[in-house]
Design a protein around this nucleic acid. Structure first.
Length: 446
RNA sequence: GUGGUUGUAGCUCAGUUGGUUAGAGCACUAGAUUGUGAUUCUAGGGGUCGCGGGUUCGAGUCCCGUCAGCCACCCCA
């Protein structure tokens, strides 16, 4: 006997979880498409040199790599951005710019696991390639906002900042040479105390006076106009800093004009993002009720996506929904109603003699857009109903010999056990319409 | 990769200073009950105590290793 087991950091998804996951993916897909982003797909395996091109030690360590059967050095993608860069370098001539794509796919990293961190996980990226327009930045923020809103989250905040504001600050403070360390430290402000961050900055030879200024900047809060005005003065005479503030102002102005509710999108000068390839706007999104969960949708603007693979300059802006983290958060908040079935109607199988009738009824319901599970065995009715209730069907449809003779049917709500009689007199349209409207009524209550 | 912590049935757990054949509740299967999820009753399946070694007359219990989960660091999604 071989012990059935899964590798460390790899998971099975049971129906209840997989359904919740697909629901979120469907919503994200719908929102992405509503802005004109088109799907692409790329291979899970790439030539090793493509993936290691950027060559940081960290990604090198995490990379799943091996020789394929033809002796080629290959690796599994560890994000969707590097494959996108290769993809654009290869196809941009056909695609033209601006190119807007989304990709929802698994990636692999051989790093240590922790709650919510796995070796195989999904990324849901959307990016706009080939334009430096702030309108593309704005749209990125709007998409992040729309996805979270469409999922039905009531309390969330999209926090935006601009790397150029930070660069301007660092220039003013003569810290440009330590920018990576400084930004990484500031990025911890959400999790660590300001004292801890100050200590870490100090260890990177940042003078106390500069630390005080950085912290006061990072902790600026308030309406966008208030924060932006404060940033204007902090950035001082730095040209790049002023450009950053101006760009943020345009984005926030656009967010408001697009009709986003006040407070949903704010300026947060402490948002830096760990990755050093961001050059303009950066954004993170949080569930207000679970700030400790971390960002559930993050991204930003980068100057040169594909410099490793082509001479053509390809600027871009994009973001990614952290689907696993988001699901964990929704579950913790009890916002995930878990069912084990995607179907609406459970059709009870009473007796073989009516098999043809059941198949006809089920087919009619499916044509009308309802999902029907027909129980495959004429087992005891009680057992069938038990299965249906356990799997989370909203209703069961019961039509036995008595009902067929009388031209009726019972539609039973599995949540309340209440049963309603439908008089359909053998007319499938009447039956289908009645079930359809009852389902609508049940859904409206949720 | 480093450090800490946990591991007994599908789930939650009990199991005495090491002592006979490892238990409970829930869940599951079948029946009482050939047309309605509950309750009740009866019967049943399911464990190499994460895995491997060691100490011992004897290990679920002690020791070592290993695998997996969780937490922190690192980094990030």
């Amino acid at each position: 006997m071989i012990e059935p087991r899964t590798l460390k950091g790899f998971r099975d998804h049971l129906p209840a979880q997989a359904l919740a996951r697909e629901n979120i993916l469907d919503i994200a897909r719908r929102v992405y498409r509503s802005y004109g982003f088109a799907p692409i797909d790329t291979p899970a395996l790439e030539y090793l040199e493509i993936l290691t091109g950027k060559g940081s030690d960290e990604t090198d360590k995490q990379l799943y790599r091996f020789k394929d059967h033809g002796g080629r050095d290959v690796g599994m993608r560890f994000d969707l951005t590097v494959p996108l860069a290769r993809f654009c370098a290869q196809h941009i001539a056909t695609l033209g710019t601006p190119f807007k794509r989304y990709q929802m796919a698994s990636v692999w990293r051989g790093e240590n696991t922790q709650r919510g961190r796995y070796r195989e996980f999904m990324q849901c990226d959307f990016d706009t390639i080939g334009t430096t327009s702030p309108v593309a930045d704005l749209e990125t923020v709007l998409v992040a906002h729309d996805v979270l809103k469409a999922i039905g989250i009531e309390k969330f905040t999209v926090r935006v900042n601009d790397r150029r504001v930070l660069s301007g600050m660092l220039q003013e403070l003569s810290l440009a040479d330590r920018s990576t360390h400084v930004l990484r430290s500031l990025d911890k402000l959400g999790k660590a105390t300001s004292e801890a961050v100050a200590a870490e900055l100090s260890s990177h030879r940042v003078p106390d006076e500069a630390i005080a200024k950085l912290l006061s900047m990072a902790q600026l809060r308030g309406t966008p106009s208030v924060v932006l005005a404060a940033l204007d003065t902090l950035v001082g005479s730095s040209e790049i800093g002023r450009v950053g503030v101006a760009s943020l102002r345009r984005v926030l102005d656009g967010v408001q004009k697009a009709g986003v509710a006040d407070g949903r999108v704010v300026v947060d000068p402490s948002i830096a993002r760990g990755l050093d390839y961001y050059t303009g706007i950066v954004l993170e999104s949080f569930l207000d009720e679970l700030p400790g969960l971390g960002s559930i949708c993050s991204g930003g603007r980068y100057d040169n996506l594909a410099g490793l693979y082509t001479k053509q300059s390809l600027p871009g802006v994009g973001a990614s929904v952290g689907i696993d983290r988001l699901l964990a958060g929704l579950e913790e908040l009890g916002r995930l109603h878990l069912t084990e079935t995607p179907a609406d109607v459970f059709l009870v199988f009473f007796s073989e003699e009516h098999l043809g009738d059941y198949l006809r009824v089920a087919a009619a319901l499916r044509v009308a857009g309802m999902a029907v599970e027909f129980f495959p065995e004429a087992k005891r009715v009680g057992q069938q109903l038990k299965v249906a209730a356990k799997k989370g069907f909203p209703v069961a449809l019961l039509i036995g010999s008595d009902e067929f003779a009388a031209g009726t049917a019972q539609l039973k709500s599995l949540a309340t056990q209440a049963s309603a009689t439908i008089n359909w007199h053998g007319d499938l349209h009447v039956l289908v319409d009645a079930i359809h409207s009852q389902l609508q009524a049940i859904r409206a209550k949720h």
